[in-house]
Amino acid sequence: MGKQRAQRLAELLKKEISDIILKEVKDPRIGFVSLTDVEVSGDLRHANVYVSVYGEEKERKETMQGLKKANSYIRKLLGERIKVYHTPELLFKYDNSIEHGAYISQLIDQVNKEGREESNND
């Protein structure tokens, strides 16, 4: 039962945090952010929020700083929107899985292109 509750809360947090970042947070450092996952601890008091940031390394660092600065504001708004006994402490973590996937896709495309060129030369 506890695991299902944590998963339901994680999905709700993901939806609400995404909405808050999109509509409420006005920090200019925060660029294009995508929430990839939210993991809630078993006691529902802590949540790891995994974010992917589109852009260069400088933009990623600025966005992560902006999110850490806005953490308490986001948590306050979460407390108003969801009804749980304790609003979880949020910890924003950078997730590079989207960039890694794009890199792997690029490598596959490159290998396929080279394979086609070799078959055309034969």
Results as ranks from 00 to 15, higher is better:
residue 35 L to S: 06
residue 121 N to M: 14
residue 59 E to V: 07
residue 28 P to G: 14
residue 54 Y to H: 11
residue 1 M to G: 15
residue 3 K to V: 14
residue 87 T to N: 04
residue 52 S to R: 00
residue 16 E to I: 05
residue 119 S to A: 12
residue 15 K to G: 00
residue 4 Q to T: 13
residue 12 L to T: 02
residue 103 Y to W: 11
residue 72 S to C: 11
residue 33 V to D: 05
residue 94 Y to V: 04
residue 47 A to E: 01
residue 80 E to F: 05
residue 2 G to P: 11
residue 89 E to Q: 12
residue 2 G to A: 14
residue 118 E to R: 13
residue 21 I to F: 01
residue 18 S to W: 07
residue 71 N to K: 10
residue 17 I to K: 02
residue 52 S to Q: 12
residue 105 S to I: 07
residue 4 Q to E: 11
residue 75 R to G: 02
residue 11 E to D: 13
residue 96 N to G: 14
residue 20 I to V: 11
residue 109 D to V: 01
residue 16 E to H: 07
residue 65 Q to A: 11
residue 84 V to A: 09
residue 106 Q to C: 00
residue 72 S to R: 09
residue 102 A to F: 04
residue 119 S to E: 13
residue 89 E to L: 14
residue 12 L to K: 04
residue 45 R to D: 05
residue 95 D to W: 04
residue 44 L to S: 09
residue 81 R to H: 01
residue 3 K to F: 12
residue 23 K to T: 09
residue 100 H to S: 05
residue 99 E to K: 03
residue 59 E to Q: 12
residue 64 M to W: 03
residue 56 E to L: 15
residue 73 Y to S: 10
residue 89 E to T: 12
residue 74 I to G: 01
residue 120 N to R: 11
residue 65 Q to Y: 10
residue 38 V to L: 10
residue 5 R to F: 13
residue 37 D to L: 14
residue 25 V to I: 15
residue 68 K to T: 14
residue 1 M to W: 08
residue 44 L to P: 07
residue 47 A to H: 03
residue 75 R to A: 05
residue 116 R to Q: 09
residue 108 I to P: 06
residue 48 N to C: 10
residue 4 Q to P: 06
residue 4 Q to H: 11
residue 23 K to Y: 02
residue 92 F to M: 07
residue 50 Y to F: 02
residue 8 R to H: 15
residue 89 E to C: 12
residue 63 T to F: 02
residue 8 R to F: 08
residue 93 K to H: 03
residue 33 V to A: 00
residue 10 A to G: 04
residue 27 D to K: 07
residue 83 K to P: 12
residue 102 A to G: 04
residue 25 V to A: 01
residue 43 D to R: 09
residue 46 H to K: 06
residue 33 V to C: 12
residue 1 M to C: 14
residue 111 V to D: 09
residue 18 S to V: 02
residue 88 P to C: 03
residue 76 K to I: 15
residue 86 H to A: 15
residue 17 I to G: 00
residue 88 P to Y: 03
residue 57 E to Q: 15
residue 10 A to R: 03
residue 1 M to L: 13
residue 91 L to P: 00
residue 6 A to F: 08
residue 31 G to N: 09
residue 34 S to V: 07
residue 27 D to F: 08
residue 14 K to Q: 12
residue 25 V to P: 03
residue 103 Y to M: 00
residue 121 N to Y: 06
residue 69 K to V: 08
residue 38 V to Q: 04
residue 108 I to R: 06
residue 102 A to P: 00
residue 43 D to C: 15
residue 30 I to Q: 01
residue 54 Y to V: 04
residue 4 Q to V: 14
residue 116 R to N: 00
residue 47 A to G: 07
residue 58 K to C: 09
residue 40 V to K: 02
residue 20 I to R: 07
residue 92 F to D: 01
residue 74 I to T: 05
residue 66 G to P: 05
